[in-house]
Design a protein around this nucleic acid. Structure first.
Lengths: 406, 406
DNA sequence: CGTTATTTCTTCGAGCATTGAACTTAATTT
DNA sequence: AAATTAAGTTCAATGCTCGAAGAAATAACG
């Protein structure tokens, strides 16, 4: 995570309180104090300031049930007054770049997506300059279409499929035919704002980790099964992107040195066994399936393959079984190296999780000593298209400190 | 990294200054200020306090060349006065447990090993209680034999080959036949001190990262080639041991699902291709070599194998080539997942690095896209028996905050 | 040889974040 | 109505850090 504009550090306590409200939703001051582990006096000071500045407000609910008090009722004593962020305080604009699609979204001060717009275009036909231009146009359109009343734009975020080096340049993306596009600086110069670029899987991992139920899990991995196979890694409570941002390429971890060719140009990557394109490629060789853009089978086509498996088709089941084995092999190595306490399997590919899981577990059981296996929980996680946007919004909001009166 | 005794946090600034002196050696206050990135005023305050307490002292060198001033001479202006830690201020006692050997060392306040003592015994014959007893005896012996004048014992450290879970219990070690030995609590109770247990490879990684030249490298891996294959991982500037301490088991990363059996009971681990025992096992099948304790070929025997390769023996060279391929495969996965900026290959096995390297590099080049490969430097690192002790000493010193007048 | 320049180091006071304690507010229970 | 309970506020005390001013110790310069 980095920025272009100079890092004007806001008050860390204030940022933590803002973040707590984004993660946990509206909270009473006492509860905020315990979340951020500061005294009520401190929280009172900070929230007072922010309420006066108009960034927060007290919310009056009638008959609010209070889940933090035992019994759930309101109990005795002075009632809590929950405070919430004012969504319009400020905003961020984020862009998701994927194959043949640029999606732009307005993120409000609470971290929610306020509006989105999608533009289809042939991304692989773009030059570096055209790409920058297209993205800038979408950012401008988003700004134009923004409903009135929003405060300043805090920054711009960019979530990209592919390899983002130094959070700066798009080293490689399946959506592009150009490489090493310096995307951040032109946008930062053009808009005079902080610009953040990140891998889409990292964004998703951040969005998921930001859910209340995962707050205490400091080391986790989020696997993204789809056309390709990506991964976002949370290490020590933060998104890990290596020194160079070029990490967590789980999909290009090896299964067999002499395996099939992968999109990356090498052989035997996990992705070339588990990715949608690999499954469909093999399926088409053995089953009577419609021809397709070999690189990117559609959702319907993949669903058809799943349906075959559901009907007990041995070939389809065999394909998924093989993919599960490869997946298990990759997870074995991931666990041996990192031993995250939780691995979530997500992405559109979870549709076939039930067919992958048995052979994946078998593979893990065969290859990994119990001591290691017992430390890591693996489970599927509902896939939600919107996670990428929430993640990149969180990244920008978390990166740019909020300044009073800025 | 954890402790048993409650974490009484000392002043973080004081700890950083102590650490800076341990890492960089004696320094003038100005230079300390720039190392810890605090103002000279703050450093002056802290060092003044510590000098008065007797934990530091000014050191008067005659004709000191000053490498931090341009020209190297003493230059104009008031000369710097370097301060150093007083080694006797306090001490730690550390124990290294390896196969058939318990080594105990006294670590002084500067982080150096002041004295060591080694005891040979059949570690695999010990019960859990006997192991605790043996270690406690060595700690007591070390304390008895300690030259007079040392301040209080700050803590006890334990570096172990094998899997340390939760920095608490020895889940598994090749040195032991028992499993899941809770080693920390009995020792902590017995001596009333903080006790730290850590994997030996992690200790070595810490010791290496603590060298001045690696201070700026936040993500690195230290590979330990020896009888087994271990790894220590530095992530975000700190030793990474997963939530459970059971991470960085690079040696048990997979190469071939149906490969030879490994010590861990599974098949096809990198270690079962690269570990000394694996090399010697295969060598003995093809060459006329003396029989041996198959699990642990001696240094001489391994040296003999290297000599064969040096003389151009095709079988020996072939073995190392295969090991290099396996190593390259493992590194491919490591780099794809973590992309550390530096990988050091160390351990007694570096003796054969020149025979491993070509096939290792070839394997990496075949399997990894350039973008990833270019981000990681791989090089051998001189192996030094003493690194483990320095590492565990640093771990204890870094974990226990130094209290004035404690 | 004295003066000036230069650099290190110390001291002191200002500024800031944080907190405990006392207090106020607003509800329920008796 | 009084007592109790809990939330939130205010304020003074603490502690950390730093800038500024000054003291100390040296080299360079005339």
């Amino acid at each position: 995570m980095n920025r272009i504009s100079p890092e004007q550090s806001g008050s860390p306590t204030r940022d933590r309180i803002l973040n707590a409200l984004r993660v946990h939703g509206p909270q009473a001051r006492v509860d905020l104090a315990s979340i951020v582990e500061m005294s009520p006096a401190t929280v009172s000071g900070v929230t007072g300031e922010l309420v006066r500045a108009g960034a927060m407000r007290e919310v009056f609910e009638r008959d609010a049930a209070d889940s933090t008090r035992e019994g759930g009722g309101r109990g005795r004593g002075r009632p809590k007054v929950t405070i919430e962020l004012v969504p319009q305080t400020a905003h961020v604009i984020v862009v998701k770049l994927s194959i043949n699609e640029i999606q732009v979204a307005l993120g409000d001060f609470t971290g929610s997506t306020a509006s989105t717009h999608t533009r289809s275009l042939d991304t692989r036909a773009l030059s570096a300059a055209e790409l920058v231009k297209a993205i800038a146009e979408e950012v401008e359109r988003c700004h134009r279409d923004m409903s009135p009343g929003y405060g300043p734009c805090l920054g711009i975020g960019l979530a990209v499929q592919g390899l983002v080096r130094d959070s700066d340049v798009l080293a490689w993306s399946p959506a592009l035919s150009v490489r090493d596009v310096d995307i951040v600086r032109p946008l930062a110069d053009r808009f005079g704002l902080s610009v953040y670029a990140a891998n889409d899987a990292n964004c998703i991992a951040l969005a998921i980790r930001n859910r209340p139920e995962f707050q205490s899990i400091d080391n986790m991995a989020v696997l993204m099964l789809g056309t390709g196979v990506g991964m976002g890694l949370i290490v020590g409570g933060k998104v890990y992107d290596g020194r160079t941002g070029a990490a967590a390429e789980f999909g290009h971890t090896k299964y067999q040195m002499d395996g099939p060719f992968c999109h990356c140009g090498r052989r035997g990557c996990i992705e070339s066994f588990v990715g949608d394109y690999a499954l469909y490629r093999d399926a088409r060789a053995m089953l009577d399936l419609p021809n397709t853009d070999a690189l990117h089978p559609s959702e319907e086509q993949m669903q058809a393959l799943c349906d075959l498996a559901a009907r007990g088709d041995p070939v389809a089941l065999g394909l998924f079984e093989q993919a599960g084995r490869a997946l298990g092999f990759g997870l074995t190595n991931l666990i041996a190296l990192i031993s995250p306490s939780l691995i979530l399997v997500s992405g559109s590919g979870v549709r076939a999780y039930e067919y992958l899981e048995p052979s994946m577990r078998r593979s893990l059981g065969d290859a990994l000593v119990e001591t290691l296996l017992a430390n890591t929980e693996i489970r599927p996680y509902r896939w939600d298209e919107d996670l990428t946007l929430r993640g990149i919004i969180a990244l920008v909001l978390g990166g740019v400190p909020f300044q009073l009166g800025a």
